[in-house]
Design a protein around this nucleic acid. Structure first.
Lengths: 158, 158
DNA sequence: ACCAATAGTGAGACATTGTGTCAATACTGA
DNA sequence: TCAGTATTGACACAATGTCTCACTATTGGT
């Protein structure tokens, strides 16, 4: 089966709690709420989006989470590879929940549905680039954009 | 030899003027100044950088070019493939002067020196992704980051 | 060369996204 | 329980980009 594409093992809030404390971070109530809210998304979300969602908490809890806390927490989660920072087609940054090791994403330009993939065909290119330019190459960014099946226009057949 | 890397044919201001009018844009003095300033750069520059450079015009011309004009003009130039929008290592957007067709860049994380390359190894990957996901794939973004020869630490000899 | 039509400009207000500060708070281990 | 300290939240601030709108300058026709 398609071993190159799917992300079959969803991460859980308690798993993230474990990772947090393993890294020496405290488990606080804002962090838990942020993690839970992030896990609700199966497509990229922006920090501001989370800010808004956590502000209108419908269950009556009026305690706001500060914007800075959300940005900080997302940074932490990204640094632990729980989230990935991705660039949206428009050029804006967003986060996706991700399993560690995954690096690249296929993103629907219309609805932002996202598929992670691990195969990375640039190794050979990197060798050529090193030979040609004498750069030391440390990192790369690869994002693929298109239309997911649901957003594609119907094939005209009635 | 390195046919995959260099960008040997620099574009000129008058060439850009031609392209502009071919696309129905007027040749205005702000646009000419923006184009000339952009051509001075051989590495990525941000819109704000151009704003600053065009503000301190040292030749005594006190006419400022509005920020909006600069952003608009850069957008136009990018839409005509005279410039490319690239993502800097930090995640910020910048522009590089580029020959049409070139799409990817190798960028030094330290000094932002940039090398354009045309080879693009993702065609095969794209086929796999289409087969696995049924996406229609329209575009992709690939940026490679590293250290240029001048910014690399010395090899520890001595 | 002149004119009218209209694309383009510039200034600044505004929006968005993100960072820094710092007193107050809450988590943790003892 | 308590103290130590990581963390929080509110807000100020910065950077980057968008929008508006009256004014200006370019262009094509004459």
């Amino acid at each position: 089966m398609s071993q190159s594409v799917t992300t079959p093992e969803p991460i859980t809030a308690s798993h993230i709690r474990t990772i947090l404390s393993q890294h020496g971070y405290r488990i606080t109530s804002p962090r838990q709420r942020i993690v839970e809210q992030a896990l609700l998304h199966d497509r990229p979300f922006t920090a501001e989006q989370l800010v808004a969602e956590l502000r209108n908490h419908e269950d009556g809890s009026e305690s706001n989470i500060g914007r800075a806390t959300i940005y900080r927490t997302l940074e932490i989660l990204a640094s632990m590879d729980v989230l990935s920072r991705v660039i949206q087609p428009g050029g804006h940054a967003a986060y996706v929940v991700d399993a560690p090791g995954h690096r690249h994403h296929l993103v629907c330009s219309q609805c932002s549905a996202t598929v992670a993939f691990t195969s990375c065909p640039i190794d050979e290119l990197v060798q050529d680039l090193i030979a040609d330019t004498q750069f030391q190459i440390h990192d790369h960014m690869l994002e693929v954009f298109g239309l997911c099946p649901e957003c594609q226009p119907p094939t005209n057949g009635t």
